[in-house]
Protein backbone atom coordinates (compact mmCIF):
# COMPACT_ATOMS: atom_id res chain seq x y z
CA UNK A 1 0.00 0.00 0.00
CA UNK A 2 1.05 3.54 -0.72
CA UNK A 3 2.02 5.48 2.38
CA UNK A 4 2.13 9.27 2.46
CA UNK A 5 3.40 11.15 5.48
CA UNK A 6 2.71 14.72 4.35
CA UNK A 7 0.56 16.17 1.66
CA UNK A 8 1.27 19.65 0.34
CA UNK A 9 -0.80 21.49 -2.18
CA UNK A 10 1.94 23.60 -3.71
CA UNK A 11 1.36 27.36 -3.77
CA UNK A 12 3.68 27.78 -6.72
CA UNK A 13 6.18 25.84 -8.79
CA UNK A 14 9.10 27.14 -6.79
CA UNK A 15 7.72 25.57 -3.65
CA UNK A 16 6.93 22.35 -5.48
CA UNK A 17 10.45 22.20 -6.87
CA UNK A 18 11.95 22.88 -3.48
CA UNK A 19 9.94 20.13 -1.81
CA UNK A 20 10.69 17.71 -4.60
CA UNK A 21 14.45 17.84 -4.07
CA UNK A 22 14.10 15.28 -1.33
CA UNK A 23 14.43 11.79 -2.67
CA UNK A 24 11.44 10.47 -0.78
CA UNK A 25 9.18 13.28 -2.00
CA UNK A 26 6.89 12.73 -4.92
CA UNK A 27 4.91 14.92 -7.29
CA UNK A 28 1.38 13.60 -7.64
CA UNK A 29 -0.01 13.07 -11.08
CA UNK A 30 -3.31 11.30 -11.49
CA UNK A 31 -2.45 8.71 -8.83
CA UNK A 32 -3.58 5.71 -10.89
CA UNK A 33 -0.09 4.19 -10.99
CA UNK A 34 1.33 5.66 -7.82
CA UNK A 35 -1.33 4.19 -5.57
CA UNK A 36 -0.73 0.65 -6.81
CA UNK A 37 2.81 0.57 -5.53
CA UNK A 38 4.17 0.05 -2.05
CA UNK A 39 5.99 3.36 -1.89
CA UNK A 40 6.51 5.36 1.24
CA UNK A 41 6.34 9.02 0.31
CA UNK A 42 7.56 11.62 2.76
CA UNK A 43 5.89 14.54 1.03
CA UNK A 44 3.31 14.25 -1.70
CA UNK A 45 3.33 17.39 -3.79
CA UNK A 46 0.08 18.33 -5.44
CA UNK A 47 0.22 20.72 -8.38
CA UNK A 48 -3.51 20.79 -8.86
CA UNK A 49 -3.89 24.32 -7.49
CA UNK A 50 -1.64 25.86 -10.11
CA UNK A 51 -3.96 26.04 -13.07
CA UNK A 52 -1.90 23.52 -15.00
CA UNK A 53 -4.86 21.47 -16.16
CA UNK A 54 -5.70 23.25 -19.40
CA UNK A 55 -4.85 23.00 -23.06
CA UNK A 56 -3.98 26.32 -24.62
CA UNK A 57 -3.83 26.62 -28.37
CA UNK A 58 -1.90 29.47 -29.98
CA UNK A 59 -0.97 30.15 -33.58
CA UNK A 60 2.26 28.15 -33.21
CA UNK A 61 1.62 25.54 -30.61
CA UNK A 62 -0.50 23.68 -28.10
CA UNK A 63 0.56 24.20 -24.49
CA UNK A 64 -0.77 21.36 -22.39
CA UNK A 65 -0.55 21.74 -18.62
CA UNK A 66 0.96 18.76 -16.82
CA UNK A 67 -2.20 18.20 -14.77
CA UNK A 68 -4.41 17.90 -17.85
CA UNK A 69 -6.29 14.61 -17.66
CA UNK A 70 -5.88 12.20 -20.57
CA UNK A 71 -9.60 12.43 -21.17
CA UNK A 72 -9.24 16.16 -21.88
CA UNK A 73 -6.60 15.43 -24.53
CA UNK A 74 -8.79 12.78 -26.00
CA UNK A 75 -11.75 15.09 -26.39
CA UNK A 76 -9.88 18.28 -27.29
CA UNK A 77 -11.16 19.48 -30.62
CA UNK A 78 -8.05 21.45 -31.52
CA UNK A 79 -5.65 18.59 -30.85
CA UNK A 80 -7.82 16.11 -32.67
CA UNK A 81 -8.29 18.38 -35.66
CA UNK A 82 -4.52 18.87 -35.76
CA UNK A 83 -3.74 15.15 -35.48
CA UNK A 84 -6.61 13.96 -37.62
CA UNK A 85 -8.07 12.10 -34.67
CA UNK A 86 -4.84 10.23 -33.89
CA UNK A 87 -4.71 11.82 -30.42
CA UNK A 88 -8.08 10.33 -29.58
CA UNK A 89 -7.13 6.99 -31.08
CA UNK A 90 -4.01 6.82 -28.93
CA UNK A 91 -5.96 7.36 -25.72
CA UNK A 92 -9.37 5.79 -26.04
CA UNK A 93 -8.16 2.25 -25.32
CA UNK A 94 -6.68 3.14 -21.95
CA UNK A 95 -8.87 1.31 -19.39
CA UNK A 96 -11.92 3.58 -19.27
CA UNK A 97 -13.23 7.13 -19.15
CA UNK A 98 -12.97 7.34 -15.35
CA UNK A 99 -9.36 6.20 -15.47
CA UNK A 100 -8.57 8.79 -18.13
CA UNK A 101 -10.29 11.49 -16.07
CA UNK A 102 -7.77 10.69 -13.34
CA UNK A 103 -4.53 10.00 -15.22
CA UNK A 104 -2.65 13.14 -16.21
CA UNK A 105 -0.48 13.87 -19.20
CA UNK A 106 2.33 15.01 -16.90
CA UNK A 107 2.27 11.75 -14.96
CA UNK A 108 2.21 9.70 -18.15
CA UNK A 109 5.05 11.54 -19.85
CA UNK A 110 7.22 12.04 -16.78
CA UNK A 111 6.96 8.35 -15.93
CA UNK A 112 8.27 7.44 -19.41
CA UNK A 113 6.55 4.11 -19.00
CA UNK A 114 7.37 1.45 -21.53
CA UNK A 115 3.72 0.70 -22.16
CA UNK A 116 2.80 4.33 -22.70
CA UNK A 117 0.47 5.09 -25.56
CA UNK A 118 0.78 8.74 -24.57
CA UNK A 119 4.55 8.87 -24.97
CA UNK A 120 4.32 7.08 -28.32
CA UNK A 121 1.76 9.60 -29.53
CA UNK A 122 3.72 12.67 -28.48
CA UNK A 123 6.93 11.30 -29.96
CA UNK A 124 5.07 11.08 -33.23
CA UNK A 125 4.48 14.83 -33.10
CA UNK A 126 6.92 17.71 -32.96
CA UNK A 127 6.66 17.96 -29.22
CA UNK A 128 8.57 19.16 -26.17
CA UNK A 129 8.39 19.12 -22.46
CA UNK A 130 8.79 22.26 -20.47
CA UNK A 131 10.61 21.55 -17.25
CA UNK A 132 10.61 23.98 -14.35
CA UNK A 133 14.41 24.14 -14.28
CA UNK A 134 15.44 22.41 -17.44
CA UNK A 135 13.30 24.51 -19.75
CA UNK A 136 12.13 23.24 -23.07
CA UNK A 137 13.45 19.82 -24.06
CA UNK A 138 12.54 17.94 -27.22
CA UNK A 139 10.35 14.95 -26.37
CA UNK A 140 12.74 12.49 -27.95
CA UNK A 141 15.58 13.74 -25.80
CA UNK A 142 13.40 13.73 -22.71
CA UNK A 143 12.25 10.20 -23.39
CA UNK A 144 15.80 8.93 -23.17
CA UNK A 145 16.79 11.02 -20.16
CA UNK A 146 17.06 9.52 -16.70
CA UNK A 147 14.45 10.56 -14.16
CA UNK A 148 15.53 13.56 -12.14
CA UNK A 149 13.96 15.81 -9.50
CA UNK A 150 12.87 18.54 -11.92
CA UNK A 151 9.19 19.21 -12.45
CA UNK A 152 7.41 18.77 -15.72
CA UNK A 153 5.22 21.84 -16.18
CA UNK A 154 3.85 21.68 -19.70
CA UNK A 155 3.86 19.50 -22.74
CA UNK A 156 4.18 21.48 -25.93
CA UNK A 157 3.13 20.44 -29.39
CA UNK A 158 4.38 22.64 -32.20
CA UNK A 159 1.85 23.05 -34.94
CA UNK A 160 4.03 21.94 -37.79
CA UNK A 161 1.54 20.84 -40.42
CA UNK A 162 1.41 17.09 -40.47
CA UNK A 163 -0.53 14.02 -41.25
CA UNK A 164 -0.38 11.37 -38.56
CA UNK A 165 -1.79 8.04 -37.58
CA UNK A 166 -1.77 5.88 -34.49
CA UNK A 167 -2.08 2.11 -34.20
CA UNK A 168 -1.85 -0.26 -31.30
CA UNK A 169 -2.17 -3.99 -30.86
CA UNK A 170 -3.79 -5.19 -27.67
CA UNK A 171 -4.76 -8.59 -26.34
CA UNK A 172 -8.06 -7.13 -25.17
CA UNK A 173 -9.67 -3.82 -26.02
CA UNK A 174 -8.72 -1.95 -22.84
CA UNK A 175 -5.53 -3.79 -21.88
CA UNK A 176 -2.00 -2.42 -22.03
CA UNK A 177 -0.74 -2.39 -25.59
CA UNK A 178 1.38 -5.25 -26.88
CA UNK A 179 2.86 -2.78 -29.33
CA UNK A 180 2.16 0.83 -30.24
CA UNK A 181 3.01 2.60 -33.47
CA UNK A 182 2.66 6.19 -34.46
CA UNK A 183 3.56 7.64 -37.83
CA UNK A 184 3.62 11.18 -39.08
CA UNK A 185 4.35 12.99 -42.27
CA UNK A 186 6.00 16.37 -41.68
CA UNK A 187 7.63 18.53 -44.33
CA UNK A 188 7.21 15.71 -46.77
CA UNK A 189 9.17 13.19 -44.69
CA UNK A 190 7.65 10.33 -42.78
CA UNK A 191 8.59 9.26 -39.29
CA UNK A 192 7.66 6.17 -37.33
CA UNK A 193 7.58 5.70 -33.56
CA UNK A 194 7.33 2.31 -31.89
CA UNK A 195 6.37 1.85 -28.26
CA UNK A 196 5.54 -0.88 -25.75
CA UNK A 197 8.46 -2.86 -27.14
CA UNK A 198 7.88 -3.42 -24.16
CA UNK A 199 10.49 -0.85 -23.20
CA UNK A 200 10.13 2.88 -23.86
CA UNK A 201 8.84 4.23 -27.12
CA UNK A 202 11.45 5.29 -29.66
CA UNK A 203 11.48 6.99 -33.00
CA UNK A 204 12.76 4.62 -35.65
CA UNK A 205 15.76 6.22 -37.35
CA UNK A 206 15.89 6.14 -41.11
CA UNK A 207 19.58 6.02 -41.96
CA UNK A 208 18.87 4.73 -45.45
CA UNK A 209 16.50 7.58 -46.18
CA UNK A 210 13.77 5.16 -47.19
CA UNK A 211 11.10 7.59 -46.12
CA UNK A 212 12.74 10.79 -47.38
CA UNK A 213 10.30 12.58 -49.58
CA UNK A 214 7.58 10.05 -48.76
CA UNK A 215 4.91 12.70 -49.17
CA UNK A 216 5.89 13.37 -52.76
CA UNK A 217 6.07 9.74 -53.85
CA UNK A 218 3.60 8.10 -56.19
CA UNK A 219 1.22 5.53 -54.73
CA UNK A 220 3.36 2.72 -55.98
CA UNK A 221 6.54 4.25 -54.60
CA UNK A 222 4.87 4.84 -51.26
CA UNK A 223 3.75 1.24 -51.18
CA UNK A 224 7.30 0.09 -51.81
CA UNK A 225 8.78 2.52 -49.30
CA UNK A 226 6.28 1.48 -46.63
CA UNK A 227 7.08 -2.16 -47.29
CA UNK A 228 10.81 -1.51 -47.24
CA UNK A 229 10.70 0.56 -44.10
CA UNK A 230 8.52 -2.00 -42.36
CA UNK A 231 11.11 -4.66 -43.19
CA UNK A 232 13.85 -2.36 -41.98
CA UNK A 233 12.01 -1.60 -38.72
CA UNK A 234 11.43 -5.30 -38.22
CA UNK A 235 15.16 -5.85 -38.04
CA UNK A 236 16.19 -2.54 -36.48
CA UNK A 237 13.73 -2.05 -33.62
CA UNK A 238 14.78 -3.86 -30.48
CA UNK A 239 11.89 -5.74 -28.93
CA UNK A 240 11.52 -8.15 -26.06
CA UNK A 241 9.08 -10.52 -24.50
CA UNK A 242 7.00 -9.99 -21.40
CA UNK A 243 3.80 -11.39 -19.94
CA UNK A 244 1.72 -10.14 -22.82
CA UNK A 245 3.71 -11.32 -25.79
CA UNK A 246 7.03 -12.71 -26.93
CA UNK A 247 9.74 -10.69 -28.62
CA UNK A 248 9.19 -12.70 -31.76
CA UNK A 249 5.56 -11.68 -31.98
CA UNK A 250 6.36 -8.07 -31.21
CA UNK A 251 8.88 -8.04 -34.03
CA UNK A 252 6.17 -9.26 -36.36
CA UNK A 253 3.87 -6.52 -35.10
CA UNK A 254 6.57 -3.89 -35.69
CA UNK A 255 6.45 -4.84 -39.32
CA UNK A 256 2.67 -5.01 -39.60
CA UNK A 257 1.87 -1.84 -37.70
CA UNK A 258 4.68 0.18 -39.29
CA UNK A 259 3.35 -0.64 -42.70
CA UNK A 260 -0.21 0.12 -41.70
CA UNK A 261 0.76 3.43 -40.14
CA UNK A 262 2.82 4.49 -43.15
CA UNK A 263 0.05 3.54 -45.52
CA UNK A 264 -2.33 5.60 -43.40
CA UNK A 265 -0.18 8.72 -43.46
CA UNK A 266 0.52 8.13 -47.13
CA UNK A 267 -3.21 8.35 -47.76
CA UNK A 268 -3.42 4.76 -48.93
CA UNK A 269 -6.05 3.65 -46.46
CA UNK A 270 -5.11 2.17 -43.18
CA UNK A 271 -5.36 -1.49 -43.99
CA UNK A 272 -3.23 -4.12 -45.62
Amino acid sequence: MLKIRNYVKAADLAEAYELNQKKTACVLGGMVWLKMGNRSVSTAIDLSGLGLDTIRETEEEFVIGCMTPLRALETDEGLNAFTGGAMRESLRHIVGVQFRNCATVGGSIFGRYGFSDVLTMFLTLDSYVEMYRGGRIPMEEFASMKRDRDILVNVIVRKRPLVCAYFSQRNTATDFPVLTCGASLMDGNARVVIGARPSRAMAVQDPGGILTGFGEMTGEQKEKAAEAFAEYAFSAVAVNGNMRASGEYRALLVKVLTKRALRAVGGMGNEG
Binding site: I4, Y7, L28, K35, D46, S48, Q98, F99, N101, C102
Partner: peptide, 18 residues
Protein backbone atom coordinates in the same frame (compact mmCIF):
# COMPACT_ATOMS: atom_id res chain seq x y z
CA UNK B 1 -16.81 5.47 -9.72
CA UNK B 2 -17.98 8.72 -8.16
CA UNK B 3 -18.39 12.21 -9.56
CA UNK B 4 -15.71 14.73 -8.65
CA UNK B 5 -16.78 18.21 -9.69
CA UNK B 6 -19.16 16.53 -12.10
CA UNK B 7 -16.63 14.20 -13.74
CA UNK B 8 -16.66 10.45 -13.25
CA UNK B 9 -13.43 9.34 -11.54
CA UNK B 10 -12.13 6.23 -9.84
CA UNK B 11 -12.35 6.97 -6.14
CA UNK B 12 -9.73 4.26 -5.55
CA UNK B 13 -7.22 6.49 -7.31
CA UNK B 14 -8.06 9.84 -5.73
CA UNK B 15 -6.64 10.97 -2.42
CA UNK B 16 -9.37 12.08 -0.04
CA UNK B 17 -7.44 15.30 0.60
CA UNK B 18 -7.71 16.13 -3.08
Amino acid sequence: TVLLDGKPVLSCSVLAVR
